[in-house]
């Protein structure tokens, strides 16, 4: 600036103020740069989901309208696969089994895990160790769990022997059409309830003590405190557990596959097993894709329903 007049400097400054120098095209506005950086950071995740999650999902939906034996090229067959499914009693039975399994295991997991959490929360001596011991069921490999339970549930196995004092000498847990599904639901709850117990425990610990003290002062007993304090404040956690355990149950495969092979008859065949058999054993990938779309639709409807309830719970108690 040396050598220039002051007025000249002011004039130049005014001009710069009045009409900013044109920004080079590569120099974006701050906000836009922030946005682009943000997109840059999330792009790998979006691409990952697009390629490895949504891509296969879209492809599976596309496959469900084709006849595809995994060797020759898929041939478009319209809604044929879906029509076949509707006429197939094995599919209908598997669909009912899946719904029964989802409902049964979700209810049992929720009730059992809430009960366990309430028991642990009483802070009796050794409660923590009990919790740790129970959580171990989640760390055991699922294959080992299934094989051990298969032996325990033998008609004359340990579980039946425990019932002998009640005059029960034999129960065909896994080989009777009436008991096989309840037995698998019970094993599922045994496996997953301790996991959700931890979730409930976190929810219980988050409830302020003052509420219980106030209720106690008002003369509320244990049951009333549970009904009017614990339950309402635990509702978001309950919704969470219901949604997650229902989704876990809908995808169950190994437990019925190893413990009963879908039998006896068709009593424990769930949709995920049927997808596997139809696709890989019978080499009918188009039909398998159609079954997976049905399973996806069930899960989607269920999730949306639960999310609605969840949101409503949040609004009411939030």
């Amino acid at each position: 600036m040396a050598g220039r007049s002051t007025s000249g400097e002011i004039a130049a400054g005014d001009a710069a103020y009045a009409r900013p120098a044109a920004r080079p095209f590569w120099r974006l506005h701050f906000q836009r740069r922030i946005t682009l950086w943000g997109i840059g950071f999330v792009l790998p995740t979006i691409l990952f989901f697009a390629v490895f999650k949504f891509g296969p999902m879209v492809w599976a939906i596309e496959l469900s309208f084709t006849s595809y034996d995994m060797v020759s090229m898929p041939a478009f067959v319209g809604l044929d696969n879906y029509r076949k499914l509707l006429a197939d009693p094995v599919f209908r039975e598997s669909l009912v089994n899946t719904l029964v399994y989802i409902a049964g295991s979700t209810i049992l997991i929720t009730v059992a895990s809430l009960g366990l959490a309430l028991a642990i929360n009483t802070r009796v001596p050794g409660a923590r160790y009990c919790m740790m011991a129970m959580f171990l069921t989640n760390l055991m490999p699922i294959i080992a769990v299934c094989l051990v339970w298969r032996f325990l549930l033998h008609p004359f196995g340990l579980i039946t022997q425990l019932l002998q004092p009640f005059g029960i000498d034999r129960v065909d847990w896994l080989t009777s059409q009436s008991t096989a599904m309840p037995a698998i639901i019970a094993v599922t709850a045994w496996r997953f309830a301790p996991y959700f117990m931890v979730v409930f425990l976190a929810g219980l610990l988050a409830i302020p003590k003052d509420y219980y003290e106030a209720a106690e002062i008002d003369g509320a007993g244990g049951l009333l405190r549970f009904r009017h304090v614990t339950l309402p404040l635990l509702l978001p956690t309950i919704f969470f557990v219901v949604v997650i355990s229902a989704l876990l149950s809908a995808r169950i495969f190994l437990m019925p596959y190893i413990m009963t092979g879908g039998g006896p008859g068709n009593a424990t065949r769930v949709l995920s097993m049927l997808i596997y058999e139809t696709g890989f054993s019978y080499m009918k990938m188009g039909e398998a894709a159609a079954i997976s779309v049905v399973l996806f639709a069930i899960m989607l409807v269920f999730t949306m329903l639960q999310m609605r309830l969840f949101m409503r719970g949040e609004r009411v108690h939030g």
Binding site: T175, S176, G262, G263, G265, N266
Partner: peptide, 16 residues
């Protein structure tokens, strides 16, 4: 498909 169907049928006949 045949083997699976027969197996399921035999299970129903023999176990149930």
């Amino acid at each position: 498909e045949l083997a699976d169907a027969v197996h399921r049928g035999v299970q129903r006949i023999m176990l149930n």
